[in-house]
Simulated assay, not measured.
Amino acid sequence: MKIVAGMGCIDDYIKLVKAGADEVFCGYVSYEWNKKYGSLFPLNRREVLYYNIQISSLEDMKILKKMVDFYKVPVNITFNYLYYLEEQYEMIANIIKDLINIGFNDFIVADIALILYLKERNIKCSIHLSGECAELNRLSIEFFNKLNISRYIFHRKNTIEDMKSCIRSNEVKNLEYEAFILNERCHYTGAFCSSLHCDEMIHLCKVPYELLRIDKNEISFCEVDKRIESYYKAIDDKDKEEFDIENQFDPENEYGSESEEGMEGSYFIGETGCGLCSLKKLKKAGITHLKVVGRGNSIENMEKDIKSLKKAIAILDNTEISETYEEYIKNKLLDGKCSGQCYY
């Protein structure tokens, strides 16, 4: 199984490759697109301008291609917004043609209309069907096979049994299948999520929630108010705690920056989503690629994620350990510190 890692800027490419990534994926939004449509109508479900989550110039993409030529680790480019306006398809096709002319050929697409548009315009490229498209079963994959999809990316809600059934029932052989393995576990299915992922507001998928059975005869708005008040107090307390930690002074450092030990202690494997214990089942199901989500994540954490996943794959390939893989991962790799944010 190969590791596919998310990248926010071209400066991170070499670090991801050296950490052990077999592929990289990134977002590209051209100046022309931002000028006409702004960040609220993004190309790839990231309504962001102010931190490293998009590549925004064709010259940077040319530099990235030179890196790819040298390190031989391919880059896939995301165009996985759920839908586009009719007037936008021609601009998107021109952007994709520019990227193909540079030398990129693999694109992650969610919108079926865009896939058809590219096919009708005879724009030859490799299409990875995004998990945002929500391919759910073998019948939908049978339909998408007609569109010459080279890789299916299962969304976050597909169970391993779902994946296994889809892969084994697919009459088209030698296709690739990708599954989420680390980071950004979400209670939404991407195709049915209308949340923004922007600079100014917390992502809706990160707002905590609680499922309760409500008796319509005993609805208490006072109780609801108390819960809301408690929720916001907890957020304020957490923000204050994080602020205090960030502003702690290191006696050895007159400028008050964090010590290396403090920075190391902040990392936790799979804190926001983890599937390491399910690696053996994913392999048996036929998964060929494992997605480490990371656009916008710190490069230091991404390097650690990739190294941890690389180690987990090596453990799985060790025939002496493979029988007790899950137990070994929990005790040795995770050191018994499970995040509880399990994908599968």
Rank of each mutant, 00 (worst) to 15 (best):
E260H: 10
G38T: 06
R138K: 15
I228R: 15
F143W: 07
K284Y: 11
N217W: 11
I77L: 09
V48I: 15
E264F: 15
S322R: 05
E254R: 11
A314G: 04
E264Q: 14
A110H: 09
I167F: 01
L43H: 06
E132K: 10
Y209D: 09
K304A: 06
I315A: 06
N183G: 00
F180M: 00
N158K: 02
E242F: 15
I108N: 04
R185I: 02
A110W: 03
L276N: 04
I306F: 03
S39C: 11
L118P: 03
N76M: 14
R168S: 12
E135D: 06
E258F: 12
Y31V: 10
L139N: 10
S126C: 11
E142A: 13
A21L: 04
M67P: 06
K216L: 13
I149R: 01
F268H: 15
R45E: 09
S308G: 02
F249N: 11
L129C: 05
N318H: 02
E87R: 08
S230W: 12
E271W: 09
D317N: 14
Y89Q: 06
K337P: 07
I299A: 02
F192D: 08
A110C: 07
D317T: 02
F268M: 14
Y255K: 11
S194R: 08
E323H: 15
K157T: 04
E184D: 05
N145W: 05
C205M: 07
L147Q: 04
E161H: 07
V73F: 13
E161F: 01
S278M: 12
S266R: 14
D305V: 00
N217T: 14
H128G: 05
V224S: 08
I95N: 14
L139V: 12
V17T: 05
K2Q: 15
N297H: 14
I329Y: 01
C26I: 07
D199P: 03
E176A: 08
R227M: 11
L147T: 02
G38A: 02
G262D: 15
Y13V: 07
K233P: 05
G296Q: 05
G20C: 03
A134M: 10
L196G: 08
F79T: 04
T288S: 13
K124C: 08
L316V: 01
Q88T: 10
G6A: 03
D237V: 11
D11W: 13
D111E: 00
V293M: 00
S130E: 01
L136T: 14
D244C: 13
N34K: 14
E200Q: 15
I92M: 04
S30M: 02
K62M: 09
Y89P: 09
I77D: 09
L99I: 09
M7E: 04
S126P: 10
A113C: 08
K330Y: 10
N297Y: 05
L211V: 15
N94G: 08
I112P: 09
K240Y: 14
C166E: 10
I123P: 01
I160H: 00
D239Y: 13
K307F: 00
C26K: 07
Y81A: 13
Y89H: 03
R156V: 01
G275P: 01
K281W: 09
E326T: 06
L16P: 12
E178P: 00
